[in-house]
């Protein structure tokens, strides 16, 4: 992105930080609730410089990536099956429609009963949150494949497996990736939440733990790290998406 396009937004951000700083210094905001940004910055720098950030960061990223991968693969597979085989659609549609509206965060306590509070439970919660948006978008993408394209495959004697892999899947890819982009945000939410509820590991746990220990500056420092993680994940995904969909009209150079 060009600097000229992002600088107005950066100015707003800087103004906000300066305003916050001034408000805290003027006593308009209680320091105990919201320390001045200039007080948070050194703590943040300390976490980064000492390498203290790495272990919790990797713990959370591991959850996000593992859950995202499992949920995406399952979502794509089930979505393709439901979109391609009418029998699979009729069989699974009521179940999917029943489970889809449940906020997946609400399932974490139940999952803890079955799977305990270890990695398995956390990855399962993240996968479940990732699964449904990917599934529903894949299904929509498969159903939207142009009939003319499918007829072209038929008149050239393509079999069902070749058609599914080399025509339906790439044709549905823009939808699949849109679903995955939504799911990536949800994956981070569920990872943080699972860490908070289980009281161990990662960024989510630390944010809660710092708050409970009245280490408010540390809490905000970890919050900033979490924000940057979210930003970086989204940026990475957009990069991959652009590469994969370089042929799309909206992305043409």
């Amino acid at each position: 992105m060009k600097l000229s396009r992002i600088w107005p937004g950066l100015v707003v951000l800087a103004l906000l930080l300066a305003g916050l700083e001034a408000a805290v210094n003027a006593g308009l905001i209680r320091r105990a609730l919201m320390p001045a940004p200039s007080a948070i910055a050194p703590v943040l720098w300390g976490l980064l410089e000492s390498g203290e950030v790495l272990e919790p960061l990797f713990a959370t990223l591991r959850l996000v990536f593992a859950g995202f991968a499992i949920g995406s693969v399952l979502g794509i597979a089930v979505g393709l099956a439901m979109g391609w085989f009418p029998a699979a659609f009729r069989l699974l549609e009521p179940l999917v429609e029943l489970l889809r509206p449940i906020p997946k965060a609400a399932l974490v306590p139940a999952l803890m009963l079955f799977l305990g509070i270890g990695e398995t439970m956390k990855i399962t919660s993240v996968s479940l949150a990732v699964l449904f948006p990917v599934l529903v978008n894949t299904l929509q993408g498969v159903r939207g494949v142009d009939r003319v394209m499918l007829d072209a495959a038929r008149t050239h004697g393509w079999g069902p497996a070749h058609t599914l892999l080399h025509l339906v899947l790439p044709a549905a890819l823009p939808f699949i990736l849109a679903g995955m982009r939504i799911s990536l945000g949800l994956a981070l939410v569920l990872a943080v939440l699972a860490e908070m509820l289980t009281g161990q590991g990662g960024l989510g746990f630390l944010i809660l733990d710092m708050q409970r220990s009245f280490l408010i500056r540390q809490m905000y420092a970890w919050l900033v790290i979490l924000a940057v993680v979210g930003l970086a994940l989204n940026g990475l995904f957009l990069f991959v998406e652009r590469r994969a969909l370089h042929w799309q009209p909206a992305l043409r150079p």
Partner: peptide, 17 residues
């Protein structure tokens, strides 16, 4: 296998990717 159909809408029958 002996006959192939050529579609009116080439924009829809070619694969854009």
């Amino acid at each position: 296998p002996e006959a192939v159909y050529v579609f009116q809408q080439y924009t829809r029958s070619l694969l854009p990717w």
